[in-house]
């Protein structure tokens, strides 16, 4: 397509922004969700409040969150921080539940066996519970990463949306090519993120693929 050849710089810039806007929230979100998820399991009274608030945050449409954040955190409406903050909120909302469920899914007889053999709490968390919860956590991470990649483009409606800029441009020009390029690149990026996480999972959890368990 001529469109690609004539707009390489523009497409690459949009792609670059898209990657940053999608990936940074995933990393921030996981860093925040891990301790929150652990707390939800450790202190049972925290579980329902945390999970319910997460569920409500996750229900908020992305465009609504994008546009109200500047008023709440005091950023400019065109700041990329709005998108990053909003997507971080979604990632946390999803991953708190995932981390909590992952840790809850660890058979209590196994954690008790660990304690009975002389594991202390912190070492048990990192040596036994988190590794066993990892397949569940990484499965959730795949969902979060793929969702983030596709959500970024909505940000184009407030001026910062990575590949979303190609969609608004195509609409304004009544021209289908940039839209197709944007969709294809966005989907490819989502698939790439998914594949990377799957490969990481295979490396980290060889035991989960054996014996027909997932």
């Amino acid at each position: 397509m001529d469109y690609i050849a004539n707009n390489v710089d523009l497409i690459l810039a949009a792609l670059g922004q898209h990657v940053v806007l999608a990936i940074v929230p995933v990393i921030l979100g996981v860093i925040i969700a891990l301790p929150l998820g652990y707390l939800a399991v450790r202190y049972r009274w925290l579980y329902h409040p945390l999970i319910n608030v997460s569920g409500l945050l996750y229900a908020i449409p992305s465009l609504a969150l994008f546009v109200v954040l500047p008023g709440i955190i005091g950023t400019r409406i065109l700041s990329p921080i709005n998108i990053i903050a909003a997507l971080t909120i979604y990632t946390v909302a999803l991953m708190v539940r995932v981390v909590a469920n992952g840790l809850n899914s660890v058979d209590p007889t196994i954690t008790q066996a660990a304690s009975a053999m002389g594991y202390r709490r912190v070492r048990r968390l990192f040596g036994v519970e988190l590794p066993i919860a990892l397949p569940v956590i990484l499965a959730g991470l795949r969902v979060a990463a793929v969702s983030n990649v596709s959500l970024v483009s909505v940000g184009a409606l407030i001026g910062v949306g990575g590949l979303g800029a190609l969609f608004t441009r195509g609409l304004q020009l009544g021209y289908i090519d940039p839209i197709i390029v944007g969709i294809v690149l966005s989907v490819l990026l989502a698939v790439l993120c998914d594949v990377i996480i799957v490969l990481v999972q295979r490396q980290l959890t060889p035991w989960s693929r054996i014996g027909g368990r997932s």
Binding site: V146, S147, V149, S153, F167, I179, S186, V187, D194
Partner: peptide, 19 residues
């Protein structure tokens, strides 16, 4: 489910309207 999640909503809307 995965495919639906990966599809950018604004892109899909833009595509259908342009077409």
């Amino acid at each position: 489910g995965n495919a639906g999640r990966a599809l950018p909503t604004l892109g899909l809307v833009s595509l259908l309207v342009t077409m």
